[in-house]
Simulated scan of single mutants.
Amino acid sequence: MLERKRLKGRTQVTFILPADAPQGPVSVVGDFNHWNPAAHPLEPRSDGTRAAEVSLPAHSSHSFRYLAAGDYWFDDEQADHHDGNSRIHT
């Protein structure tokens, strides 16, 4: 799931997944963090989900995917567009 909050000149994007699907550590990786899996790991939240927040320039478009344990890459079904990667428009 994706949540967006508009801020002055930026958009705060929260990438959210269930706590146990998939199991193990998961990171959101994309052009906004140079595809670095260590940059934005999803962290547990009190509501039973896990999430990572990224602040992106407003009115921009970015490619991303999730990377889970075992080199398992997957897309976000709620992304704005899919072209081999998930895409989000801020």
Rank of each mutant, 00 (worst) to 15 (best):
L67I: 13
G30H: 00
S46V: 00
R10W: 01
D75F: 03
L17F: 12
P41S: 07
S63C: 07
Q78M: 14
L42S: 10
D71M: 14
P18R: 01
M1T: 12
G84R: 01
G24S: 08
D31G: 07
I88Q: 02
L17H: 10
P37Q: 06
T14M: 05
T90S: 02
D76S: 09
A21K: 15
L67W: 00
R6V: 15
P44S: 03
P44W: 07
F15C: 11
A51I: 01
H89K: 15
N36I: 06
R10S: 03
E77Y: 07
D76W: 04
Q23K: 14
T90P: 00
Y66N: 01
P41H: 04
Q23L: 05
D83H: 14
P37W: 07
K5I: 09
V54A: 08
R4Y: 07
P57C: 05
P57L: 02
T11L: 04
P57Q: 05
L17E: 06
D83P: 08
A19F: 06
A38M: 07
H81F: 13
R6G: 14
T90I: 03
Q12F: 03
V26L: 06
P57M: 11
M1H: 04
W73T: 12
Q78N: 09
A38C: 11
E43Q: 12
S61A: 14
A58P: 11
S55F: 15
L42P: 05
E3L: 01
E43W: 07
P44A: 08
R65A: 09
S86C: 05
G30P: 00
I88W: 00
W73I: 03
A69V: 10
A58I: 07
H34N: 15
A38R: 13
Q23V: 12
F15N: 02
V13Y: 07
G30F: 10
P41C: 11
E77C: 09
P37A: 06
V28K: 09
H34K: 15
S46E: 01
P41G: 01
S60F: 09
A38D: 11
G84S: 12
F74M: 08
W73R: 14
G24R: 09
T14P: 09
L67R: 10
H89Q: 15
